[in-house]
Design a protein around this nucleic acid. Structure first.
Lengths: 189, 189
DNA sequence: ACAGTGACGGGACTTGGTGCCATCACCATA
DNA sequence: TATGGTGATGGCACCAAGTCCCGTCACTGT
């Protein structure tokens, strides 16, 4: 018999999400999370640098985005490269079985300023990654910044739409459609 | 003789900025800030909700942006309304006498993730304000989101340029020029 | 003269977060 | 079978951020 139950980080995530839903983020203690997960405070901070980060694990998004942009066809425009990256993310991270979990997580994040703050920082990081990847393709600085920003906006909107339970589209298709809408709106400003 | 030296919040801000420059944000204690300002911890948290917020006081930006959009000519396009808002901000908040202080503050913020995180949250709030103001003008939802996002991007870039000591342009003009560059880049994506 | 007000001081307390050391099933090797 | 290393965990002490509550006292209006 194994000494420790496996998947400690995931158990902590599940416990945290449940407690945040029940009592709210700021009314639940790290110790309460660890108790529900059958662990201790030490272990929590060994897996996550701080309390917020338990909801922002993964962290593979930046890599996926960069890969998606790097592997876009050579002749693709900046926004087409970004669309390629959104495809990659949709296939790898936003599979339909994670939709409900994503929605619960998003609701918790939306309800708390500290968590929204962390999410905003993560988004900045993703945008910076996209800008770098685009510049490596030879895209001029300003164009890269605009394309990355528009891509991030399309991504946020598509993410909202994807979580809608009445919606059965897969993420990649949703993101592509949203990106073209965003592009159209930007030229009509 | 007055019982307390006046301008406690400003004294705290000055002390904090100095200490952050000297030792870095995370290596300076709230108590150290209050000691330099001749106050106490209680007083610090009476003026600022948390340690980061000492660098994000003001908080009049959202109001200025909304006013700027509300008072834009009736026939103005979304991006023109945003440009009008950037003008308003430039006149009221980014006067040339605050340039050096702004640059010092930005350097400190850029050097620390916690502070960048707070700045990202503030930016989200400003974007949300702009979106609301644009929608009140009858701008469709998606267009409003895109216009606000492009405006925020132009604002960030103009802010960087404005802080450059070799640059003598005033903020409003810089912002206008930057916004047209951003618009051009967005149509060329 | 006198009570109310408001900005500040001060201390107790909770919680997030760090650091260090002990524990002990598992594993490889002899 | 013995033995020593490894690695995820527990446990504890400690610091700093942030909250609460109460006391102080110059100023202010009546």
């Amino acid at each position: 018999m194994a000494r420790w139950k496996p998947h400690a980080p995931e158990r902590l995530l599940v416990a945290a999400l449940e407690l945040f839903e029940e009592r709210g983020y700021e009314h639940t203690t790290v110790i309460e999370i660890t108790e529900r997960a059958g662990l201790t405070k030490s272990t929590f901070f060994r897996h996550f640098p701080d309390k917020r980060e338990v909801l922002f694990g993964g962290g593979t998004m930046a890599g996926l985005l960069v890969d998606g942009i790097d592997t876009a066809p050579a002749g693709a425009s900046p926004l087409e490269a970004v669309a390629h990256a959104l495809d990659a993310i949709g296939r790898a991270a936003f599979t339909s079985d994670r939709r409900e979990f994503s929605a619960r997580r998003s609701a918790v994040v939306a309800a708390n300023p500290e968590l929204r703050e962390r999410e905003a920082l993560k988004e900045l990081g993703l945008i910076a990654s996209m800008i770098d990847a685009l510049k490596r393709r030879g895209v001029p600085d300003l164009t890269a910044r605009v394309a990355a920003e528009l891509g991030a906006l399309a991504w946020k909107i598509a993410y909202e739409r994807w979580q809608d339970t009445t919606n059965r589209d897969d993420f990649a298709e949703l993101a592509r459609r949203t990106l073209t809408e965003v592009q159209a709106a930007s030229t009509a400003c």
